[in-house]
Design a protein around this nucleic acid. Sequence first.
DNA 1: GATGAATGAGAGTTCATTCAT
DNA 2: TATGAATGAACTCTCATTCAT
Lengths: 198, 198, 198, 198
Amino acid sequence: MIEMTMAERKAFNKREKIIKSAIKIVNRRGYSGTTMEEVAAELLMTKGSLYYYFKNKSDLMFQCNSIVLLEAQEDLKRVLLDESLSIKKRLQEMVFIHIHYAIEENEVFNLIMRPEQLFSEEQLEEVLHLRDEYAAFFDKIIAKGIETKDFNTEDPIMLRMFILGAMNWIQQWYKPNGRLSKKEIQQRFWNYILKLLT
Amino acid sequence: MIEMTMAERKAFNKREKIIKSAIKIVNRRGYSGTTMEEVAAELLMTKGSLYYYFKNKSDLMFQCNSIVLLEAQEDLKRVLLDESLSIKKRLQEMVFIHIHYAIEENEVFNLIMRPEQLFSEEQLEEVLHLRDEYAAFFDKIIAKGIETKDFNTEDPIMLRMFILGAMNWIQQWYKPNGRLSKKEIQQRFWNYILKLLT
Amino acid sequence: MIEMTMAERKAFNKREKIIKSAIKIVNRRGYSGTTMEEVAAELLMTKGSLYYYFKNKSDLMFQCNSIVLLEAQEDLKRVLLDESLSIKKRLQEMVFIHIHYAIEENEVFNLIMRPEQLFSEEQLEEVLHLRDEYAAFFDKIIAKGIETKDFNTEDPIMLRMFILGAMNWIQQWYKPNGRLSKKEIQQRFWNYILKLLT
Amino acid sequence: MIEMTMAERKAFNKREKIIKSAIKIVNRRGYSGTTMEEVAAELLMTKGSLYYYFKNKSDLMFQCNSIVLLEAQEDLKRVLLDESLSIKKRLQEMVFIHIHYAIEENEVFNLIMRPEQLFSEEQLEEVLHLRDEYAAFFDKIIAKGIETKDFNTEDPIMLRMFILGAMNWIQQWYKPNGRLSKKEIQQRFWNYILKLLT
DNA sequence: GATGAATGAGAGTTCATTCAT
DNA sequence: TATGAATGAACTCTCATTCAT
């Protein structure tokens, strides 16, 4: 979107590679369990080098969080604005997307449990802002559905929190080879959600 | 329940006091943010002394988890077995209890996010067992409700996971002086749950 | 002066031992050249142990500075209040004391060159306060001498700065086996100072 | 003085620019507080480039020191050799020059507090040599003054050390907006010095 | 000439854990 | 029982230095 020289692009790519790597580690070890050393090792770098790309650990963690959230937002937005789909279908897609991220990017997703402890004030503000934006996508489609009488509920905000909570929690018990596949979970959760909304 | 000498009882009490203190700290700082130092300080002890009562930090954390879960189990059991109440009423009470714990004992409750990282294999087994037991209380009442036609759902296990997830997540956004009081949240969540079950 | 239990006294002594050790290192390496590692090694401890006694490096450095300055203040005060000595004799003694410290405790004395960079605001305030107090001892005896007509000068503050500066600088060139001994330097400097004051 | 090709001259100029920049930083941050990064940033370069012009940090610091000292020497020499001025007047000018440098180039001037720590043996030798040369200018004019009976003192070397020390120390307490201006300080210090010399 | 990138040694700091008393 | 003291491993972060391009 923004013009970059070759060198800038290269640096940008490297930064992204690091973030992707860090995301993997965070998903395995959690935030405080992740060490700069391990992130570096995964990339065959030395930890000192990471500081060329990121101010400090908290900065790196912050960017991990942002990148995942922004990606998910992109996916949601595409569906939200796709007028070829019915309201219900759109929400369903969004639910599927959310569950996908909750399962695949379990720790990093919107799941920093105590972000106040990890992030600087400035970062925290943006983290919370990103989360709000994310949630707003769901609010929007629900509001539309209420307008069109597809959905019906009082206090849609609280209901959205109920629903997102249920989905976020999946990562706590999901196991790749469990009784139900990701697809089946998505389908059943969607059924519950639909029931709540009508 | 078990016979104890005076000395044993004294030690037992002390252990409990330490756990209660630790729970407070964990709720404030999270697991990895909790230091033995701070736990000891809260009790006007030195951290060395803690090791007389607990093998190590992980042991202390484990007991924190257990005590909260056992307490909550006690509360649930009392309601579950109270035949003077209707099935629905009983589940409602249980929901209220669960939300109460999720809010008041937010971090410790059933919420060690990645227990594999914190606990030894042995401990982990028990942690997971306790969780299962806990969840089973809900399964039981739901099963009863299905029998009596109070409730109606296929795959009650999955639905229970949906519901517990939604409730567990409350701690992520609950603020003591938020728009809705604990009581109001309990009520609304109960409404949603009832809708899902009928 | 203050009541202490055995244990407290022991800790106090240890702390003092560490400070004394640190002072040696600082005199050898300068402030930023001093590492916690080396201070610990000198005492056959590990650097981690230092943190049992001092909050951080800056705290240790601060206490080094304070202890030397306070000791020197004690020495000065004893002379200043010794009414059995003439004013001139008292100032002479004080000059000798100052030169002694400047030579023997060269780096730590009042000589942190850029204290703003090393100390926290709080510490800095006390450091500067201690320095001011120290200088005030000289101001007092000079003021007395002016009263008694022993001394004669306008702007005694500026003159005191001139004199202390000259003495402080000794550490920059003093060598134990140089042309003049400490005693001779003290005597000559006193001659110059007397000339300036009369 | 020495023939240079265009390219050499260009490099020479660049080197000087870097030194000037470095001097600024050193005056602000002290020797060990100065980073190659910051020096480079001030010049909109990258720190890697500095190594094209200087072997290492110590080399750069060394040249900073030299350049300031050589400049000051130039100034002193001009006055020293100006036979149109009286001996006293000449010394007065030299004192003013010295105080000027002590205030304006506070950290770099002759003030590397522990040069043994920073410089290689080779460099150290030259640093000390430059300092001696510098001091010798003062020795020369004082010697002349003694010859002409303008001044009178035994051990003029020691007295010169006393005087230079007093002046060097100014940087420890001088503040741009203090009670006395630079000019006033220069005047008073000159009065003291004159008193010492007659 | 200049730079982006990487390195590696070492610094300060934290903290669970141990143990003699 | 309790503690003061010490430890050591691990961690974050800094920075002078190098080098291919």
